[in-house]
Design a protein around this nucleic acid. Structure first.
Lengths: 337, 337
DNA sequence: TTGTATGCGTTATCAA
DNA sequence: TTGATAACGCATACAA
């Protein structure tokens, strides 16, 4: 009662395994009636080709490995959705694995991909590349997503955090704010660093003489609340806050409003990511086409797997968009743009 | 510059491939110095075992196939996170695939798993089991998650939609509501049907003489808005609404408040799922331990893969919890329980 | 303790 | 057009 193999089909059809293989794979050199017979027998026996054996023989698995860190809700589902869309369009399977923060585990995850996949999609914003880059199985093409630099060993897709942060700075300038606070993300995270540096630079350029205060955070809502409490307790001068992600911005927003501060009248607040909650709370933020990045990553990897030739630029920057909502303008928080 | 194979290691170490295999896999019958030598050589050559060849030889891939439909944000990431946690604990890889609504594509996805994985996790709330159940490769153990019945061919994990819906009904009874509206999900979805039927039954039991109106929906926020507009336009008597999921409840909530209705004073509103937005809007809802279900599914599948014996009950019901928030009580919507 | 040989399920090369 | 057979990379039964 186990699965039928190609040999079962061959025996039952009175043919050689070679002929069955050719018939099933649509080779031209096989008589129509033979093919029909083979297909009928295969169908009757419920034959399904063994993908493992097939990929061993063909030296190609038609699968790609996806190594992601612990991602929060929408971000995770969107990037996987984008990858899946493009992958299934190309007949590729997705082998998912977690990019643990621990280099040893990361190494393990990467090595486990050897012999299972034809290429790798690696996302590791929180770890330096030398922590894992030697673990990428030799000969496996790989595309990096929002990861710290790899010395150009692999092509990379990056969202342009600096450009997004600069857009917020320009927006703050437009609405006339001058006492700015940035709540940063964890320092080991490359996205967080770029948003912070890009923002600081843009503020200096866009709002000469502005006061910029940097507060630490770790991407959680709680750290956003803590930052807001710190602002209140220390009486830090502020008429605009840019948090390095939406969840921290939400924490700020709630805490400041609970404390009776008017948003945006007294203090404008902006985040980064455009998670669904941002829309409901009317939070100004930076939208990232995350599904598109996932799909594009698969696309680039697929071309690397097919033809060795790789003409696309090594690093591809994806531009995010500023989404202006109620927390930086007068309109109601119910705005659902 | 391609990957080294076990033969390269054997040649370089002056041993047979058998010895190298034994040394690397920790067999007892190999001299310590031999093992050390082999490990050193393997390390120097950057040898990584070819998982495909290994699984062909061992008739075991240490991977499990996960076939999910298009899931929204938090739901998707949580269930995958739960699966991944348990899978990596057991040294299993996750092969992800989309359970398309089209039976032909679903069949394809299932068949593509043959020879790649040792077991299957299948979630298909929107399609009848006969649409795909014959496509499950013979001999592959499988666990069903929130899928319509399979005639007992495979063990199943189900969230107890009826119990969740009944909890809402009891809650409505407690707060003294009598004119009830249920905004249902798509009829082809088994979760939606169970929530509707369980709710109707519980209302009959808990609130004798209550008026229950059933409105159609499709799980989207827009269909929730439409239902609310319908209620307003037709002047349907209502003091409590149970939507089959949170997104529709959110649509109702916004539309009714925009129309000037008091929630919860005039109309109480409850949803199902407890997505993150529910917390921010203070929406009463039903919380499902979705990550736990994912982890438990892997656990059950793993035991099926190891020992053939399967003693656990065929269908395992997971109980959801009622989460009472502002949309059904007097407390403020900012409640962050 | 180590080596030889076989098989896992397929595809591909070469003859027939 | 078809068949026999050698890979693919590894694990293991059996022999030495």
């Amino acid at each position: 009662m186990t699965q039928a193999t190609i040999r079962d089909v061959a025996r039952e059809a009175g043919l050689s395994v070679a002929s069955v293989s050719r018939a099933l794979n649509g080779h031209k050199s096989v008589r129509p009636e033979t093919r029909a017979h083979v297909v009928a027998v295969a169908d009757r026996l419920g034959y399904v080709p063994h993908a493992g054996a097939r990929s061993l023989s063909m030296a190609r698995s038609n699968a790609i490995g996806v190594v992601l860190p612990d991602l929060h809700g929408e971000f995770f589902s969107e990037i996987v959705r984008g990858m899946d869309r493009e992958a299934s369009r190309r007949g590729l399977q997705l082998l998912l694995s977690n990019m643990h923060a621990d280099p040893a585990q990361a190494t393990q995850a990467l090595r486990a991909m050897r012999g299972r996949v034809d290429g790798l999609l690696i996302m590791s914003p929180q770890m330096r590349a030398d922590g894992w880059s030697s673990a990428v199985p030799r000969g496996l093409p790989a595309v990096l997503i929002n990861s710290s630099d790899d010395n150009g060993h692999h092509p990379a897709l990056r969202m342009d955090n600096r450009a997004g942060a600069a857009a917020v700075a320009r927006h703050f300038a437009t609405i006339g704010r001058r006492s700015i606070v940035h709540v940063a993300g964890p320092d080991h995270n490359v996205d967080a660093r770029e948003r912070r540096d890009g923002f600081a630079e843009a503020i200096g350029r866009e709002i000469p003489g502005a006061l910029l205060t940097l507060l630490p955070g770790n991407f959680t809502e709680e750290s956003g609340e803590a930052a807001a409490r710190h602002i209140l307790a220390e009486n830090i001068p502020v008429d605009a806050i840019f948090a390095a992600n939406d969840m921290m911005a939400v924490g700020c927003l709630q805490t400041l409003r609970d404390a009776g501060r008017q948003v945006p009248a007294e203090i404008a607040i902006a985040g980064f990511d455009d998670v669904p909650i941002a829309r409901y709370l009317g939070l100004t933020t930076i939208r990232v086409g995350i599904a598109e990045i996932g799909a594009r990553a698969v696309e680039r990897l697929a071309t690397m797997m097919d033809d060795e030739g790789d003409d696309a630029p090594l690093v591809e920057w994806h531009q995010p968009d500023l989404v202006v909502r109620g927390t930086t303008t007068g309109s109601a928080p119910q705005d659902k743009s």
